[in-house]
Computed example of a mutant assay.
Amino acid sequence: MSPETPLLIILGPTASGKTRLATQVAHEIGGEILSADSRQVYRQMDIGTGKDLEEYIVNGAPVPYHLINIRDAGDKYNVNDFQHDFADSYQQIRTNERLPIVCGGTGFYLYALLKGHANDTVPVNEALRKELDLLSTGQLTARFQASDSRYHALADISTRKRLIRALEIAAYLNEHSETSIDFGTESIAYPAVIFGLNPPVETRRERISKRLSIRLKLGLIEEVQNLLNQGITPDSLIYYGLEYKYVTLYLTGAMTFEEMHSKLETEIHRFAKRQMTFFRKMEKDGLKINWIADEWSESEKIQFIIAHYREFKSGNAGTM
Rank of each mutant, 00 (worst) to 15 (best):
Y42F: 15
G30W: 08
Q24E: 14
A26C: 07
R20L: 09
I9Y: 02
I33L: 04
D37Y: 07
Q44Y: 07
I10E: 00
E28P: 04
A22H: 01
Q40Y: 11
E32Y: 05
A26T: 09
Q44C: 08
T19F: 01
S38I: 09
L34N: 03
V41C: 11
V41M: 12
E32F: 03
Q44V: 00
I33K: 04
D37C: 10
D37W: 04
A22Q: 03
T23Y: 11
K18R: 03
L11W: 00
M45A: 13
I10H: 02
A36M: 04
S35F: 10
M45K: 06
G31N: 01
G12E: 00
H27K: 15
A36R: 02
R43I: 06
R39P: 02
S35A: 15
E32H: 14
K18P: 07
E32S: 14
Q40F: 01
L11C: 15
M45V: 12
V41Q: 02
R39E: 11
P13T: 15
S38R: 03
M45R: 04
Y42T: 08
G48K: 06
A36V: 01
A26G: 08
T14E: 05
I33F: 02
G48N: 04
S35V: 10
T19A: 05
Y42I: 10
I33G: 01
S38Y: 08
T14M: 11
L34G: 02
T14N: 07
G17K: 10
I47P: 04
M45H: 11
D37V: 07
I29Y: 07
L34D: 00
R43K: 14
G12V: 12
D37Q: 06
Y42S: 07
L11G: 03
G30T: 08
P13Q: 10
I29M: 12
I33N: 01
T23N: 05
M45P: 02
P13D: 07
A26S: 15
I9R: 03
V25P: 01
Q24T: 09
E28Q: 13
A22F: 12
E28G: 01
L11Y: 00
I33A: 06
D46M: 09
S38D: 12
G30I: 14
A15P: 01
V41N: 02
I33M: 03
G17Q: 11
Q40N: 13
G17M: 13
K18E: 12
Y42L: 09
K18D: 11
S38N: 13
I47S: 02
G17A: 13
L34E: 04
I10M: 02
G30Q: 08
G12M: 09
